[in-house]
């Protein structure tokens, strides 16, 4: 993401790479420096690009996928995911926290592994069943 002060007073232009398709349009968003509201989107070739730019600029979300340690399982690690996408800037911290979690097999697919009590809506679940060894 490249940030460039364009209008010294009130607007900021931010660049994004569209992920909608392999054309990879270079999107530009003009946003209010104070409210961060999107004023204009440029560079898209289709509606998907425009929507993406707005979403990515105002509230970028990511699905978290990582693993946690599992004792007595068929494998040493249990793959987990966030049930729904989480704010992008939370991803690293969530993964770091999950490194310290250990569960014991068997684990059912979709079982809740961890819920963030400070951040409602962040729920980490097993993305597969883990049979005991």
């Amino acid at each position: 993401m490249s940030v460039e002060e364009k209008h010294a007073t009130d607007l900021i232009t931010v660049g994004y790479l569209c992920i909608g398709c392999p054309l990879g349009c270079r999107l530009e968003v003009d946003a209010d420096t104070i409210t961060n509201a999107v004023v204009e989107v440029r560079g898209y070739s289709c509606r998907r690009g425009k929507d993406y730019a707005i979403q990515e600029h105002t509230a970028p979300m990511r699905l978290v996928t990582t693993t946690v340690a599992v004792d007595a399982g068929l494998w040493a690690r249990l793959p987990v995911r966030s049930r729904t996408p989480v704010p992008k800037d939370k991803v690293k911290a969530i993964c770091k926290h999950l490194r310290s979690i250990r569960v014991t097999a068997p684990v059912a697919s979709g079982a809740i592994i961890w819920v963030d009590d400070r951040e409602p809506g962040i729920e980490i679940v097993a993305s597969r069943a883990m049979p005991a060894r």
């Binding site: 993401m1 994004y16 992920i19 909608g20 392999p22 990879g24 990511r62 992008k88």
Partner: peptide, 13 residues
């Protein structure tokens, strides 16, 4: 790779 992976795997970090 897919643009989606360029953004979410590289740019994000």
């Amino acid at each position: 790779g897919l643009n989606r992976n360029i953004v979410q795997c590289l740019h994000d970090f």
